[in-house]
Amino acid sequence: MSKTDPTSEVVGPEILSQRMGRGSPSPSSIELSTSAQLAPPKDRGGSKSGLLYFFHQFLRREYLSIISLIVFLLAWEGVCYFKIIGPYQLVPPTTVLKVFILKLTQVNPDGAYLWAHALSSLGLALLGFLGAALIGVPLGLFMGWYTRLNLVVRPIFDLIRPIPPIAWIPLAILWLGIGVKAKAYIIFLASFVPCVINSFTGIRLTNPILARVARVHGASDFTVFLKIGLPSAIPMIFNGLRLSLNAAWTTLVAAELVAASQGLGFMIQMGRRLARPDIVIVGMLTIGVLGALLSWGLSKAESHFVSSRRLT
């Protein structure tokens, strides 16, 4: 415990107030953990104390991050309050929060509610991402397993791979117009590459001895692919999906610069035109939060497939 002593001085008040709220007289964390064992949160009677207990545990684990966030927000607020950066360049977090709430029920000044922008962007990103995953993952797997297919596809893929997705915008408009299709296509391209590469590498990592085990049991090559190759590749597939999702989400804003009338990228663009940094920041933060949520969702899905049992 001596290791945490210096920091516990800093968070003393918070934790102490929490303890007082729980009515626990002892400040030692050993006492705390035993009381937790004796009385798990479920059996603590009221749900209020259970919630408090949960909150307390959360604080204990995350206090450094919370402090960091608070300091950051205070610094930001301070920079605006003391006019270090002027109100037309930056608005304080309190204003951002106000505008955020306001934008939920108000279409001004950019023409749509915040949630409409968010939904539009989310739909677009997911459309491109899912398309890329549905085509890219099987393609990568087959390329990794069947050498001939790899020889056929590889040169074309290697040629297209280094082209930034944004460079496709003019062609995408020429081919698909300025609607959803062109944007989805660009996002698709951006998230396609990591799907293919990671699935390819993943299935290449299949332990040849495991494949041999399957063959000894009379499995056909396709069965070995499905039953040995695919499970071996799962961790890398998810790695690819995560990178793809990132790519989809980051390309989104660029794609929405293409004659959009809705979407978070469009909202940011409007904020710039109207010299409204508050709108810009609300759009940016919404992108950040939604992106984090998507990544979190994917991690959840991954842990469903890939539990600790796979660590060999």
Partner: peptide, 25 residues
């Protein structure tokens, strides 16, 4: 065949590993 270094399927339980060959039959 019993392989060197076990060669078990890490994504399968003991039961799944032992029953694997039977499933493919």
């Amino acid at each position: 065949v019993v392989f060197q270094k076990y060669a078990l399927f890490p994504w399968q339980t003991v039961l799944g590993n032992v029953a694997w060959g039977l499933k493919s039959q």
